Simulated scan of single mutants.
Amino acid sequence: MKSNDQTLVKKLAFTLQYLWRLAIPFWMFRDAGRGTVEQRIANYRYNRAQRKILPFFMGKWIGIAICMMQLTQVLSDLMATATTQSTNYLCAAFFCMSAGIGFAFACIVLTVLSASYLYLTYVKR
């Protein structure tokens, strides 16, 4: 039974890592702040060459932000129609807050991706 639990944990970790890599592209870039001067320059050039993937990920996060905003709107409408004593109101309020937090996270990720793209595009070393 113990080996089954370990394989399940490994599968879950692999799945979460796969989903994270689908959402965040920074694992494809190199650290240009460490190493010798030549290594930093080479890593920066590599990152500049990889910047072409960032608009695709920005599009993904724009879609996620739009979905979270629409979900927040739908759940807030559900909260408006439900009475404050019902369990539907509590569930809608919890999910509405979660969707709002998801929207804020998507906006932050979108800002970081945009700033990274603009930096790698216009700042030449």
Rank of each mutant, 00 (worst) to 15 (best):
G35S: 00
R30V: 08
I101Y: 15
F26L: 00
M79G: 12
G35W: 03
I41S: 06
A42M: 10
A99I: 04
L118S: 06
L22Y: 08
L78W: 03
L110F: 13
Y18Q: 10
C96P: 05
C107V: 13
K2L: 08
Y89L: 06
M58T: 08
D77T: 02
Y18I: 10
K11W: 08
I66D: 02
A106C: 07
G63P: 06
I62W: 15
M1H: 02
A80N: 12
W20C: 06
L16R: 10
A92N: 03
A65H: 12
K60N: 14
D77M: 05
T72F: 14
S86V: 10
S114T: 11
N4F: 11
W20I: 05
D5T: 07
Y18V: 04
R51A: 08
R48T: 15
T15C: 07
A32G: 01
Y46A: 02
S86C: 13
N4K: 11
D5R: 12
C91Y: 13
A92G: 08
V112A: 08
I108D: 10
L19E: 13
L110I: 08
D77L: 01
P25T: 06
A92Q: 04
R21Y: 12
S116R: 14
I41P: 05
R51E: 01
T72K: 05
S3V: 09
R45V: 03
M97S: 11
M58H: 12
I24E: 11
L19W: 03
F29L: 03
L78E: 00
V112P: 04
G59A: 14
I24W: 13
F95T: 15
Y18N: 12
D5F: 10
L120Q: 07
I108G: 07
I53Q: 13
G35M: 04
G35E: 03
I108K: 10
R45Y: 01
D5N: 13
A115K: 09
Y44S: 09
R30K: 01
A13G: 03
D31R: 06
M58D: 06
R48K: 15
L120N: 06
V109M: 12
C91N: 12
F56C: 13
A104W: 07
Y119C: 11
I24T: 13
V112T: 12
K124I: 14
T36E: 09
D31Q: 00
T81N: 02
L110C: 09
V74T: 09
L78H: 00
A42Q: 14
F103M: 07
M68H: 09
C91V: 14
K10F: 08
D77R: 01
R30S: 05
L75N: 01
A99G: 04
L22K: 03
I101P: 02
G102V: 01
M69R: 10
F57Y: 10
T15A: 13
Y46V: 02
L71P: 00
A104N: 07
A42W: 01
I41E: 09
L71F: 04
G100K: 05
V112H: 09
R34M: 12
G100T: 01
G59F: 09
Q6C: 15
Q17F: 03
Q50M: 11
T72L: 12
A92V: 10
Y117S: 14
